[in-house]
Design a protein around this nucleic acid. Structure first.
Lengths: 211, 211
DNA sequence: TAATTTATGACAGACACTGACAAGTGACAA
DNA sequence: TTGTCACTTGTCAGTGTCTGTCATAAATTA
């Protein structure tokens, strides 16, 4: 339970170094303009090794937000079963920003840096949303399970798709630096959640009562 | 105002031939497994020429749905100004399927073929969604203009994001052949729209009355 | 028919990504 | 400590996407 071993530590170090170098280079010269050769050179590693850590150049840019989504899925699974679907999903979103707030400041800075980059790079935005949609399938499955519904239940699809829409708008980049950036993100997310709450009928995320 | 000229006609013909050949090959061997060399060879054209018609291999697969989105944007601009935003957006969606229903049967068949392909190919799904998001910016701008709001108005973003969520669920591929496919698509879209209507509070897509 | 656009093909090259093999490095037991 | 084993890395060769460039052929216009 102590150290993960030298080999493992080295790997984590290289991985993080690659992410940092990539994010820096992307910010400097843009995503498309930087080659993986450059990233590898910055970390003093062969290009081949880069692809042993990340399947694609896109992956290194999306790695942090992708981790965020994993957190959200785990969080959803931990929500109490009686909680309505939409509530459970929004609570999972909140858990993500809470984690950012409580975690290391450099970690959250990296996360926000990646988010800004993604938003300003069409190619990355596409990849990012594609991953969201892959996760969407998992979320739908989880919601359907919780509600005892079918995997292709229209309501489950709708609830999740709507939640993802909220997440997309709520996590859009806010121009602010340092700690304020996270507060700014929190504010925007809460404002969006409030807007959603105000727009939706109570109980909309559960099957209509045929009374 | 008569013929568009021989040169232009030839170009349209080549373009359509490329789309058809590509869609066929993709369906046969999968998207990634087919090379642009193969597509070019099938139309008896140099690979370089392929890239004069389509910027990327992805583009040839996305070309039809992309055209559909252009139609939707044009349709939105034509909606009456007093119509609430969400209504205008959903009407624009309906206009798209109406166009498919009334148009040439081979055209709609091609469209549905492309949609099925995209849904079953993660890489294409990513590209497809990226384009949707680019269009989303245009839709937000149009909605904001109609409502006399700011381009970064939260409500405008929310309305459009939510509409796109509905569109995504509503346009998901339905397994049916020939004319039934379009009816099946219509049914699913209408069911999703009804679900949305049922879930949202009346007047949600306009600023709250501070009464 | 001659002059001017415009589409195309042929070629070379950059870059993302992959498979295969050899060499270096940490893990672990004798 | 040493030797073996597993794992990580670098090198090299190759495929496929996509781009710039230039010469040729075809269509348009005069």
């Amino acid at each position: 339970m102590g150290q993960p071993g030298l080999r493992e530590r080295k790997k984590q170090k290289t991985r993080l170094a690659l992410v940092d170098a990539a994010l820096d280079l992307f910010a400097e010269q843009g995503y498309e303009a930087t080659t993986v050769d450059q990233i590898a050179a910055a970390v003093d590693v062969s290009p081949r090794t880069f692809f042993r850590y990340f399947a694609t150049k896109e992956d290194v840019a999306l790695s942090l937000p992708h981790h965020g989504q994993e957190v959200m899925i785990a969080e959803l699974a931990a929500r109490p079963a009686e909680e309505p679907p939409f509530t459970a999903l929004t609570q999972a979103m909140r858990a993500l920003v809470t984690m950012l707030k409580e975690g290391d400041l450099t970690d959250s800075a990296r996360f926000l840096k990646a988010r800004e980059l993604i938003e300003n790079t069409p190619a990355l935005l596409g990849g990012s949303v594609r991953r969201m949609m892959e996760n969407e399938q998992r979320l739908v499955a989880e919601i359907a399970r919780r509600e005892g519904a079918d995997r292709d239940d229209l309501l489950a699809h709708f609830v999740v798709a709507l939640s993802m829409a909220v997440a997309r708008v709520g996590f859009e980049f806010c121009h602010a630096e340092g700690e304020q950036a996270i507060d700014s993100l929190t504010n925007r997310l809460e404002a969006t959640l409030a807007l959603a709450e105000r727009s939706l009928r109570p109980g909309w995320d559960r099957p209509a009562d045929p009374a």
